Amino acid sequence: MTVVESLVPQPGLRVLVTAGANGIGFEIARAFHESGAHVHVCDLDEAAIAALPDGIAATHADVSDESHVTRLFDDLSYLGGLDVVVNNAGIAGPTGGIDEITSEQWRRTIDINLNGQYYVASRSAKALQASRGLLINMASVAGRLGFAYRTPYAASKWGIVGLTKSLACEWGPAGVRVNAILPGIVRGPRIEQVIRDRAAKRGIGYDEMEAENLAKISMRKMVEPSDIAAMALFLAAPGGSNICGQALSVCANVESL
């Protein structure tokens, strides 16, 4: 195998992507599908599920509900195992001071972003150990930086990094690799809403808030969902076979939030 060949995943991988019908998750699912993988996604958006390309299977499921995760893994039995699991499901959570955020908002963010990853990882353990596979947990640059007015989100993402590094130690002897991808400011509807919310909280305009965000990035640009998908593919390729326990920022170097 040449170095160039080692950068492409082997065809036939069995891949699960949570929240894989929209946004970053869909870009990851599509990229694996185009590489020749057998891809199954879950999502809550039934319209997005219906619009998935032929060849990508799906389950309607909320990963914060353990019974839904059980049903998802029942649906996956046709694959006969798993080689790659991408724990992508997450929400932005509320924007506000810690004294303004409700207990329900806090719990909902942690339930989806962190507890959902635990449920999926727990159910994936035996399959990934059998295949000596790969778990990718989607975190955020907010998992390495403080994020004012977004404490539930940041707390959940720091938790994901801790989950990742701990599972890498736990599963490494069985040949399973566990890594986290930390996207920066990813172009798309979610970041547009975050910018709107933070601008309103600060009492400034959208353009001013966006410019302020970009000024905190060394390369002064957002990243694309396809950039995150490319990192996921590399981790699943032979060239990524010795990358484990890492929190990999794909962010154009976000210096602060």
Score class of each variant (00 low, 15 high):
H38L: 15
H33V: 00
L52W: 07
G205M: 07
D227W: 01
C42Y: 04
G162V: 11
L7H: 10
A215G: 14
S218I: 06
L114N: 03
K216P: 00
A229G: 12
A237P: 14
H60Y: 04
A89V: 08
D207E: 15
A127Y: 06
S122T: 02
K126S: 12
G36T: 13
F147E: 11
Q193A: 10
L44Q: 13
S131Q: 08
D43P: 00
H40I: 05
I56F: 09
V41D: 08
G20N: 03
F32D: 04
L76M: 08
I98M: 15
G159Y: 02
N213P: 02
R71E: 13
S166L: 03
A48R: 01
D65H: 13
L114K: 10
R150Y: 05
A174R: 12
G55D: 06
T151R: 04
V120T: 12
L52D: 04
G20Q: 07
F73L: 03
S256W: 14
S140F: 14
E170T: 11
G240F: 12
N137T: 09
A31N: 07
V41N: 09
P225G: 00
A252D: 14
G184L: 09
A215P: 00
N242G: 04
A125G: 01
V250K: 06
N22G: 02
R108N: 14
G184N: 08
A57I: 00
D197V: 02
I185S: 09
S103L: 12
W106R: 06
R198N: 13
P189I: 15
Y149T: 07
L135Y: 01
R71T: 12
S249D: 12
G93L: 08
G116T: 10
V223I: 15
R220V: 01
L44I: 11
L44E: 09
V86P: 01
M222S: 09
T102K: 05
Y78K: 05
F26P: 01
A51G: 08
F26M: 03
E34A: 15
A50K: 14
N115D: 15
P183I: 10
M209Y: 02
G172E: 08
E100I: 11
A61M: 07
T151H: 11
Y153E: 00
Y206M: 05
V41A: 03
G116E: 08
Y118T: 01
P238V: 00
V69F: 07
A57N: 07
G143L: 05
R202D: 12
L52M: 06
L214G: 04
A252S: 15
Y78T: 07
V69W: 04
C251T: 15
V4F: 14
S166N: 14
H68E: 11
G116K: 03
R30C: 00
A180L: 03
A142H: 11
T151W: 03
